[in-house]
Design a protein around this nucleic acid. Structure first.
Lengths: 216, 216
DNA sequence: ACGACAATTATCCGTTTAGATGATATAATG
DNA sequence: CATTATATCATCTAAACGGATAATTGTCGT
């Protein structure tokens, strides 16, 4: 039996979902809310539900913020975003807030039950248009990735780059790599020329922008 | 009419998909291949198909590499990965290679037609288990994000931080913000104390690591 | 053998930083 | 009212940095 709470400000949608879901013998809608705050205060309820259907636009706290708070306090609850919004911005924020799925309200409502069941089986239902936005986001960030080879950095220069990224001074990196400070500097300046930058900070920026060297 | 090519090494699966898809009046399977290389050489074919169903494990070039090459040369072709693999690694590589969708072979085969049609309508069908892996990936990297507020940076200090990130010197940022260079410095050093760093480079590293300030 | 490049070191110069110290003014807090 | 935090400016020092120039060594390919 899957226990469900609904947070949805439109009474029609709210009661529609409640009715639809209760038709399934494996699902029980415990309570439906028109805003997030009342749900957040029901501690004993939150300890006994499995899935929350969450709208984004709500009076008071929005569904993304609510998702964030609930997931932090009750990591076992799965939250399925159910909304009309398909802006990349909202989608990403919802996912970062910890949403388990993101379904558009214009989807086939009869599929909602199978989507909820799929959540309990370890899946994350995502409407195709939402998924497209996600993929585009992931592909975009990967578009103009560069590598040290693209700039024809030499072995030694690459070592130096890593030292810079780790915040060392000329002297320190020279010690680590067994060379004179002046040599370390020579290499760095060559790297600057090759990358077209003029300082460590610009260098760092370029490294981050282009994903040169995988930091962390 | 949606024109389709299939790349799938198992003859049973290949002919099964071909049969299944040809049942739909809006879909026509132009050709089915058992490996990627023959498809890549059919230039005139590639100029006339809309969607490719692509397996990952193939004799010779794998489906991910094939996806990469096709997408680079024919960006208008949508590629739907259709595979048994649900490892995060393969999923991510396929997406970075430019896949438009990623469906598991154990999905309901009768849904394949609607998934292909959803692609042509700008969607990206993704099996729920695959989507879960994607969301987990996106959420993981977002775990220990910090904000300027977490370090109680003041308005002025935040302005200074942005100047640093943009690579300006004390003097330059002082001009931009209408203050003396010494004041700019004063602020920076305060920021360093609050963040626990000792130089611009360490500052940059922290900003990158913790996602303080959204660069770009 | 020659040239091109990588790697190494050094020196000089002016600028920029980090760090310390001190001072003033204003707003918020207790 | 006293205290604290913020914002402002100045001065000083030592270290680090960016830029230019020059020289030596080894390797690789032509």
């Amino acid at each position: 039996m899957i226990h469900i709470a609904i947070v949805e400000d439109s009474i029609d949608a709210r009661e529609g979902f409640r009715y639809l879901l209760n038709l399934d013998p494996d699902i029980k809608v415990i309570q439906a809310f028109e805003s997030a705050e009342p749900l957040l205060m029901q501690e004993e309820l939150l300890n006994n539900i499995d899935v929350i259907l969450m709208d984004i636009e709500l009076p008071g706290m929005d569904g993304i913020e609510a998702t964030h708070r609930i997931r932090r306090a009750y990591p076992d609850i799965d939250i399925l975003i159910l909304t009309i919004f398909e802006e990349q911005d909202k989608i990403l924020r919802a996912i970062h807030a910890g949403a388990t799925g993101y379904v558009l309200k214009n989807s086939d409502p009869t599929e909602l039950v199978s989507q909820i069941k799929s959540i309990r089986e370890g899946g994350s239902p995502i409407s195709p248009h939402v998924a497209r936005k996600l993929l585009e986001q992931m592909q975009k960030s990967n578009d103009q990735q560069r590598t040290p080879e693209d700039y024809q950095l030499t072995k030694r220069e690459i070592e130096i780059c890593i030292e810079i990224i780790n915040g060392y001074t000329y002297r320190e990196m020279a010690e680590h790599l067994n060379m004179a400070g002046s040599t370390a500097k020579r290499h760095i300046l060559n790297v600057y020329k090759k990358l077209g930058v003029n300082s460590k900070v610009e260098f760092m920026k370029k490294v981050v922008d282009e994903g040169l060297f995988h930091i962390h």
